[in-house]
Design a protein around this nucleic acid. Structure first.
Lengths: 252, 252
DNA sequence: AAAGTTTGACTGAATATTCAGTCTAGAAGG
DNA sequence: CCTTCTAGACTGAATATTCAGTCAAACTTT
């Protein structure tokens, strides 16, 4: 762990120009979006390798935690060398923050995919909350929250982490608020203040997420789901019955 | 950052159930459990030095984060040498986890002191929530939450952190529940399920605490306080007016 | 289309730094 | 002088990052 936000004189190197080692480094070669550092603009191979590394990094972050994730771990998992990882990401922090951003985007995309069909706002909200709490088929929400635990802890001191966190939180709240507004317009929900409710629900979910992440014995995923739903239904004034055992379809 | 939980052969210091290194935390000075190499039983001086180091460690943890807190930082702040810090705490993790425990105990003690006089359950709950959100005179709750952000992130992989977290969460919930039960007995509060309410309120507070910790622009301490109080008053059915500017007395 | 050239992907072996944790020996004081 | 404290110099183990090139495929040139 390093970074120490902007101030840092040394590390600051990235960015600016300094082509340094191989490749003209950062100065995006082709399409701007090609994210930072890394090799060329993106032969298919390169792009795949990048993603492979991001996924590997994510795995390691979940397993060992951000602070203990080493470049060599990622290199091993991708069957490459530490040098190549640096070749693609310039710095460790670059790699790790990009990995988190990557995961965030993937989660959100998956959420959209999943709720696209659901007709009622209440249904979408329930699905959202289920996604936060209940383990699905493949990838448990717990691993996802583990990453957030790290992200939150990092944010106060890392510019990069703070930026990701903010953007994600913004999106998260916007998502909730939209559902609430839609539900109110449709007459499904009571006319509470959408902003206040959004922040409060987000807080409830974050709080429960922590407990799920640390696996507190008092707060099982099921209980978390039930409490969150009860709170939501209560505030928005819609009916909700603690369906015994809900069958979650897909993970994420 | 290190530790790697249980398995670790070396650092295993924390040892089985043993009280582990120095001080059974705050309490008694001489207390038996000398265990690991620490310094003697506890000349007044030694005990003070210990505490001085714990406080210094706390400061550094807040400033740089747990992972980036070095023994030498603590040594510098106490005007001593790294060797001395190790002399007192045997290992870095020992020092850091003890520091967190120390802070936790202090916070709780301070809370008890502060609410001892308050007659109504609603008043005590409001004070508790204010303590969580609003900055007091001296020490901002934000710094306190910064520590928790680290603690949460550490817990999934560090036995020591997990233990502290669990104990603290337990105490935290017990505290809330007691107030609720007292309030219900006194007829101040509605008869909601105390356990469910406790977990939900704890989640709301944790969630808001995160936002306060990361200084989210949408969630100012004041807003957090108000939302938390509104939720609480709403659930427990007692009157609460968003008193404009509350004058916080003492920090912690 | 063979020969020559550029370029991006990639690696093994340094290098440099950063720390946790020793070790040794000196001061304090009872 | 024996115990408790304390500092300074060190060791040892990580690691992030850099270097100096290798290799093969894609482009040129003739």
């Amino acid at each position: 762990m390093k970074e120490h936000a902007g101030a840092a004189p040394s590390a600051g190197s990235r960015v600016s120009g300094a082509p340094s080692a191989g490749s003209r480094s950062s100065g995006s070669p082709s399409g701007g979006s090609r994210s930072s550092g890394g090799p060329s603009g993106g032969s298919r191979d390169a792009e795949q390798r990048r993603e492979q590394m991001l996924r590997a990094a994510l795995d390691v972050i979940v397993e060992r935690g951000y602070a203990d994730t080493r470049i060599s771990d990622v290199a091993e998992r991708t069957g490459t060398s530490p040098a190549l990882v640096i070749y693609y990401f310039k710095t460790r922090d670059q790699l790790l923050t990009e990995a988190i951003r990557f995961s965030e985007d993937a989660w959100y995309a998956e959420y959209l995919r999943q709720t696209a069909q659901i007709p009622t706002a209440a249904g979408r909200l329930a699905e959202l909350i289920a996604n936060v709490c209940l383990p699905g088929t493949d990838d448990e929400p717990r691993t996802y929250w583990l990453m957030w635990l790290d992200l939150w802890a990092l944010s106060p001191r890392s510019q990069g982490a703070a930026a990701i966190r903010q953007k994600s939180d913004e999106r998260w709240r916007t998502t909730i608020r939209s559902i609430v507004l839609a539900g109110q317009e449709a007459g499904e929900f009571a006319q509470v203040d959408a902003d206040d409710f959004t922040i409060t629900l987000a807080a409830v979910l974050d709080g429960l997420a922590i407990q799920i992440g640390v696996e507190d014995t008092e707060v099982s995923p099921e209980r978390a789901y039930e409490l969150a739903m009860r709170f939501t239904a209560g505030q928005l004034g819609f009916e909700w019955k603690p369906a015994a055992r809900r069958a979650r379809k897909r993970g994420r």
